[in-house]
Design a protein around this nucleic acid. Structure first.
Lengths: 109, 109
DNA sequence: CCTCGATACCTTGACGGTCTACATATCACA
DNA sequence: TGTGATATGTAGACCGTCAAGGTATCGAGG
């Protein structure tokens, strides 16, 4: 599986924002979805996930609400705020810029 | 310029290895070249560069030799070792894998 | 009934890479 | 003389990630 790293430093916030921008979701489901959509390449550890969620909430980019999950249990559902949507845009643009730049170098003749 | 980050965490080693895989180069020139090739997007600070070079040398991936630079001054020229070439391959493959996975998510409908 | 695995939340402590800032030295040029 | 580019390096702080642990509920199988 993901031997070297489970994710690229600094991208977790963006991945979370993007994931819940499609649909409000609780933490556990966010991690599962990122893993699935990435084809099991990206692994989100709980020790990374929850601090990130609290960080994002504290910045006002996401907000939480307790509700019932698909399995009938209580879970914290996160959704994007307006500021969060802006932040996502900014981070996605920055990622595109940086990863394109890196690819320029990596694929040099 | 590079407002948010100057580079993506964990990619510096790969960028350095790649850069000197094309031609032996001293630290200052490596930083300049990465910046130029990336279209001024990636900025390598000295405080990141030199620790990285020492790290890479200690792992046996690069080796240094004092020589005269283009400007006629003494400089440490770094070149790849065999192990370094392997490492570069591994890191590049991993980068491709991870960045592709991230792009999958970022560009979700 | 009891345990086990999955779900779901969370914290703590360590680690490691990057950044800011500083320190040093040489050379060209004004 | 002093300033800017070249060139190397260190020290300290910051911050995100990871490994590891903890709590609790629920359903299924023994």
């Amino acid at each position: 599986m993901g031997k070297p790293n489970d994710l690229v430093q600094g991208t977790l916030d963006m991945l979370i924002l993007k994931t819940i921008s499609l649909e409000a979701m609780h933490g556990w489901a966010i991690a599962r979805r990122i893993q699935q959509v990435s084809g099991e390449v990206l692994q989100v550890q709980q020790g990374s996930l929850y601090p990130a969620l609290h960080r994002l909430e504290q910045q006002g980019w996401i907000k939480a609400k307790w509700a019932e999950s698909e399995t009938g249990r209580q879970a914290k559902f996160y959704s994007l705020t307006a500021a969060g949507r802006k932040q996502l845009e900014a981070e996605a643009a920055n990622w595109t810029r940086l990863s394109a730049a890196i690819n320029l170098i990596v694929s040099e003749a």
